[in-house]
Design a binder for these strands. Sequence first.
RNA 1: GGGCGAUUAGCUCAGUUGGUUAGAGCAUCUGAUUUACAUUCAGAGGGUCGGGGGUUCGAGUCCUCCAUUGCCCACCA
Length: 879
Amino acid sequence: MEELSSRYRPQDVEDKWRQHWEKNNLFHAVANPKKKPYSVVIPPPNVTGILHMGHALNNTLQDILIRYKRMKGFETLWMPGTDHAGIATQNVVEKQLAKEGKTRHDVSRKNFLERLWAWKKQYGDTIIHQLKKLGSSCDWQRTRFTMDDGYSKAVKTVFVKLYEKGLIYRGKYIINWCPRCHTALSDEEAEHQDHEGALYYIRYPLKDNPKETIIVATTRPETMLGDTAVAVNPKDKRYKKLIGKTIVLPLMEREIQIISDEFVDPAFGTGAVKVTPAHDPNDFEMGKRHNLEFINIFGPDAVLNENTKEFNGLDRFKGRETVIKKLKNLGLLEKIEKHSHAVGHCYRCDTIVEPYLSKQWFVKMAPLAKPALEVVKKGDIKFYPDRWTKVYLNWMENIRDWCISRQIWWGHRIPVWYCKSCGEEKFIVSQEEPKNCPHCNGKDLSQDEDVLDTWFSSWLWPFATLGWPDEEKDVKYFYPTSALFTAPEIIFFWVARMIMAGLEFQKNIPFTDVYLHGTVRDAKGRKMSKSLGNAIDPLEIIEEYGADALRFSLIMNSGQDLFISKEKFEIGRNFANKIWNASRLIFMNITEVDGKTLYKEFEQLDKKKLSLAEKWILSRLQTTIKKVGEAIEKYRFSEAENLIYDFIWKNFCDWYLEIAKNELKEKNAQVVTLYVLEQTLRMIHPFLPFLSEEIWQKIDAENGSIVTQPWPQYQKELVSQKIETELDQIIGLISALRNTRAQWRIANSAKIDCILQSSEEGVLKNLEKDKDMICALARVENITVQKKTVKPKEMAAGIAEKVKFYIPLEGIIDIAKERKRIDEHLDSLKASCQNLSERLENKDFLKKAPEQIVSKEKMRLKEMKEKIQELKKTLKDLS
RNA sequence: GGGCGAUUAGCUCAGUUGGUUAGAGCAUCUGAUUUACAUUCAGAGGGUCGGGGGUUCGAGUCCUCCAUUGCCCACCA
């Protein structure tokens, strides 16, 4: 076989295999009734996105399962695509415009959208290319975008259907308004952050007697300009007399009433609340209950408007300052207290959102939530880890209506038209643009200016990407999908809504499993972000260490949240190199067998005649295959990697290959070794796709790709606990010998001999058989195996499982030191022996513990006592 | 304010129905190279499992209180 470089160089191979896979269409899935489907939809990254560690983790997890299931024989579909990400993308292009000194209003809507599409065309595929570099085995020819023509049709269909069902309505309500993005946001899009703010206490004078005042407390004093009442609790004795009285609102000189409302908490602030129905959701409700006036004091950019007299034109924060200053001058500012409270921020630009009264479109959620609650309660959909179930249920049980209209241009235009002569109230909801008004037959129609929330398209992802509503074939076959992989932050935005949409429009759940992975953080625990400058670029890691190293390292030894520093990726790089070099060693020695004949040769081997090490590695391999498969199925990725790592590095390289090295001239050894390597490559392919393909191709270049090979089948008949124990005992002995050498500082080159003594015939027989192996691995020249006890003279001595060993060290050994060394070993043995015998003397233990445990412990005690006796004897003999 | 999680070696984490002397990787220390791999090998040190109390023959694992910490949700102005 060909010679390989002494280091694995991912840069040389990854592009090659990526192209090979794509060219041969290996990731393409088609509805195939003869096979079982396994499908996953990618959480569509934003078109603005570039690959970050969160994506790398998310897609690595998906790819592991996808590749595994594909090898397991499922018709496996991983549906890729991108999200138009309304506000986020619009912001990017607006920034570009800003550089030219323009706003979107300076160019027309049409021109602005053209720019956006151009931008999408130029940059929108960046993340797709980056996902490919990671090794993601998506069905790329199916790649979808949430603003594809077909996808638009799905969105319109859903809007119309929900409207016709009475689940979409339009109305004037308080919504979260981002004054920078100039749009409404849903409740989920307003992120609450704690703010160290202030509570301002303001005096409102009564009309009858201006010297008498009622004090209200507020965190947003500027909103007083829009106050249309003051409310107190009807039970509050302090204020009972004042209910119904009139106040002259300072600065505005507006007369407003003191009203009573149960909502008011007498214990908070002063127990009197200023009521601003147009700028606070509670006040809005109160306003409706008491028929108050709704005065809007802000324009769309949160600048005070003409309703605020002299304050007109001031920004909200400047307005706050000015209002406070003026109130202070009037002697109406009672006090300012520090007050920390949560303030909503726009999830796209982090601007503080303003509760804002405006006409928007909403989805009535309760009827959709009900079945979505049921399917999770019944267990039709499972969350991993399970604790997220509660989070989901809790949100669903308290669900609020969803504001879906956005005052931006990039997105799905709301499929609603207004007739100029009939007015806004008689709107037309339709998938197609209506030619004339159904009410008056008029032709002067205009479409609603707003677009839909991005998530109003994403929530259809699991079936809209499969061709719904036009094509049923793939929906029938691949829907419901199997698993969804995403971050917990997205449960409400996306996961919950997909479940609702799936149940509503497909009458079926969109997926059965939801796997929620953690957040990628830096070593200090901070979220990785560009602005913090602590982000590690996955592409840089791919460049330097390889995609496999990136993938493997991300998962290895990671908990729910991942703490990443650059060094972390060395583990994957080193591991890949280890596998590479093990393969090199094997290839350098293989002469009698090749990929074409391997399986046949292995079949024909007389397994009983194999060496201990060969039987051992075959048994270990099977155990590992079984456990890795189980771990993947249970989404225990880190565990699966640990199993793989231990098997390859410790079992296969450190022990098996070290033992087999000298015997690789024999055909049987070659067959076994190559077989284990080949099976191992298949086993690790989902985790290390490029490396496994590169090496596998060198074994079997004529058989296509490892991508479509079956994942190893667990073969129980190759497992033997007896064999595993036997070699494990030898390993124990060799380790003890090495340890002794190290303690006596005997150079590897120094020749030593060794006497192994045991009273058991079986053990002696095995030792005799495995003598050469022990010699080689413990670097011992000659081994004498004997039943007769030894009187050590100038010897180091010790005890391993059922075997005593002696190493003559004439002239080297210091008897006093050696006694001390053995003494220490003895002490630790005695300690655990003590512990054990106490337990076995406990009557309750003997009575209540299961028989199995008791007899096991008795065995152990017996063995330990024997060991102690032997060591004591050695110590006595030592002179 | 409510809910959820975490706390095990210097660091990152395993430890799945309670049952050997609590494991791994990294880091540290000691030593090794006529070659599969220094991205390596051998060996060593390092933990009263956050604290108190409890249940049990037996607790890292179950219960309870406390501490520290993280996350999510929430219309107390």
